[in-house]
Amino acid sequence: MQVDRKKLEALFAPPDTTEATCVIRAVDVTKIYRMGTVETHALRGATLDVYRREYLSIMGPSGSGKSTLFNMIGALSKPSGGKVYIDQVDIAQLDHNELAWLRCRKVGYIFQTFNLIQVMTCLENVTLPMSFAGLDPEAAREKGIALLKRVGLGHRILHKPSELSGGQQQRVAIARALANSPEIVLADEPTANLDQKTGEEMIELLDELKQELGVTVISATHDLKMLRKSDRILWIEDGRIVRAARPDEIDFSSSEFDPG
């Protein structure tokens, strides 16, 4: 059997401490979902590095394992095989307590379906992660108001998510993702449920915030505008990363990017 030496070394080598700029490293990550007797291989060995302060876009058709990859590198579930390092810590080594800490402070999540808590006001949605982090309510309130103002919702802080438009809800979600000043923001198709104009606004906002706060943004998207703004684009297909490129290397007018 042919041994892939490079892969093997990468697998067993201790995380490279000199390369401090690498915030997320996934090595040969596999994920198998079992539904009764049927096994679904969502990831078949995805390997990628994410560098600090970069804007990384991940492209791929639906069913290619994009969301699963997001869950893995966001520490939302554990891989069936391979390793995921966040800030050079192997997440497989963490107990649920430390994972909760990691999700709370290191990573901010933005979802396609916003996932705001419907029974809470915008402000409470934004301050919830802060209270999980143990911030005292007064400070959390102030920071929450500041964040909501920053995303342009200063006048809607006491509204319920159901009283807001999609774009406004996604703004709240962005404010919530930034609540504990994370290093990494994971955005899973953040513009997919928004109309074109709102989507563009959202991209602008994310870009501004990335420049301002120096966070690392990883987003799954098909949105050309988003791809153009990103530093690097990865293609995922059938559970593997198949291609990586910079936006200036790509011809965005090719048929690959035809909408629909």
């Binding site: 649920h96 909760a100 999700r103 709370c104 996932n115 919830l128 999980f132 504990n180």
Partner: peptide
Amino acid sequence: GTMKCLGALS
């Protein structure tokens, strides 16, 4: 699920 993503403990 959302609360867990935001760092809620079990």
